[in-house]
Amino acid sequence: MSGFVNNPFSDPVEVNPFQDPAVTQATSTGIDRIEEFNPFAEETLAVNQDGTTIPATTPSSQPAVLQPSVEPSPQTTVAAAQANLLRQQEELERKAADLERREQELQSRGASTGKENNWPPLPKSFPIKPCFYQDFSEEIPLEYQRVCKMMYYLWMFHCVTLFLNVLACLAYFTTNSASGVDFGLSILWFIIFTPCSFLCWYRPVYKAFKSDSSFSFFFFFFVFFCQVVVFIIQTVGIPKWGNSGWIAAISVIPTNVAVAVVMMVVAGFFTVCSVLSVILLKMVHSMYRRTGASFQKAQQEFSQGVLTNRTFQSAAASAASSAAQGTFQGN
Rank of each mutant, 00 (worst) to 15 (best):
Q234R: 00
T77V: 13
F221N: 11
G30Y: 09
A171L: 15
D135H: 15
G110C: 01
F215H: 13
G3P: 08
S177E: 09
P195A: 00
M264G: 09
S216I: 00
V23W: 06
Y172P: 01
F302M: 12
E100R: 13
S318N: 10
L162P: 03
P21G: 14
P141Q: 01
P141K: 02
Q89E: 14
G245L: 02
F136S: 02
A96N: 12
G326C: 06
I253S: 05
L86H: 08
P127F: 02
N243R: 02
P74F: 04
F312P: 00
E90Y: 09
S108P: 00
Q49K: 13
T58P: 00
S186D: 03
V229H: 03
T308R: 07
V147W: 00
T58Y: 01
S314P: 02
E139R: 14
T24S: 15
G180M: 05
A315F: 10
F40R: 15
V147N: 01
A319C: 10
R109I: 06
S197L: 01
N243K: 06
T194H: 02
Q299V: 08
S10D: 11
Y144H: 03
W189R: 01
V147A: 04
A26I: 14
L276T: 15
V23Y: 07
E103Q: 15
A260E: 03
Y153K: 07
T194V: 09
F221H: 14
Y202C: 00
A97R: 14
F328W: 07
E143W: 05
V223T: 11
T53P: 00
S251Y: 10
P74E: 08
S125V: 14
S10E: 09
S61L: 14
Y153L: 10
I54R: 04
L85V: 08
K240V: 12
T113K: 06
T29S: 15
C200F: 02
V229G: 07
M150K: 08
R310K: 14
A96F: 15
G110M: 04
Y153F: 10
T271G: 05
I238K: 02
V166S: 06
F219R: 06
G114Q: 01
F225Q: 04
P55Y: 11
F221D: 14
S69A: 10
K115E: 07
N6A: 13
I250E: 05
L106T: 10
I31M: 07
Q104K: 12
T29F: 08
S314L: 11
V306N: 12
F269M: 13
